[in-house]
C-alpha cells in the first residue's frame, strides 16, 4: 500500500499548533494593527488550513500528484470567482 502512516508525535504536534494558533488569532483581533488585522487573521487561517490539508489529510505524504492538482485547481477557480466579482464591485463607484 502506498498510503502513509503518520506518527502520533506529528499528529499531536499539529493538533497543538492548531490550538495555539486559534488562541493567537482570537487574541490578536483585540490588538489594533489597522488594516493588517484582517490580513493577519486570514494568514493564520490559511496556515491552519494548510496544516490540516498537508498532514491530517495526508497530501504532503501522498505520491499522487493528482490530488494536489485537484486541490490547487479548486482554490484557483474559487479565487477566479472572488477576483472577477470584485473586479466589478471595486470599480463600480468610479463611474
Amino acid at each position: 500500500m502506498s498510503e502513509p502512516i503518520v506518527s502520533t508525535k506529528t499528529n499531536i504536534a499539529v493538533w497543538l499548533t492548531l490550538l495555539v494558533l486559534t488562541g493567537v488569532t482570537a487574541g490578536v483581533a483585540f490588538v489594533d494593527l489597522g488594516p493588517l488585522n484582517t490580513i493577519v487573521a486570514l494568514v493564520i487561517a490559511t496556515f491552519k488550513a494548510l496544516l490540516v490539508v498537508l498532514i491530517f489529510m495526508h497530501v504532503k505524504y501522498t505520491s499522487e500528484k493528482l490530488v494536489k492538482v485537484v486541490v490547487i485547481s479548486a482554490v484557483f477557480f474559487l479565487l477566479l470567482l472572488l477576483g472577477l466579482s470584485l473586479a466589478d464591485y471595486t470599480t463600480r463607484l468610479l463611474m
Binding site: 466589478d88 464591485y89 470599480t91 463600480r92 463611474m95
Partner: peptide, 20 residues
C-alpha cells in the same frame, strides 16, 4: 469561467469590469 459577466453588460456592472 472567465466570461460570465457578458450577460450583465446592461445590468449595471461597472464599465471597467465590463471591458475586462
Amino acid at each position: 469561467f472567465l466570461v460570465w459577466a457578458h450577460h450583465m453588460f446592461v445590468a449595471g456592472i461597472s464599465l471597467y469590469a465590463a471591458l475586462i
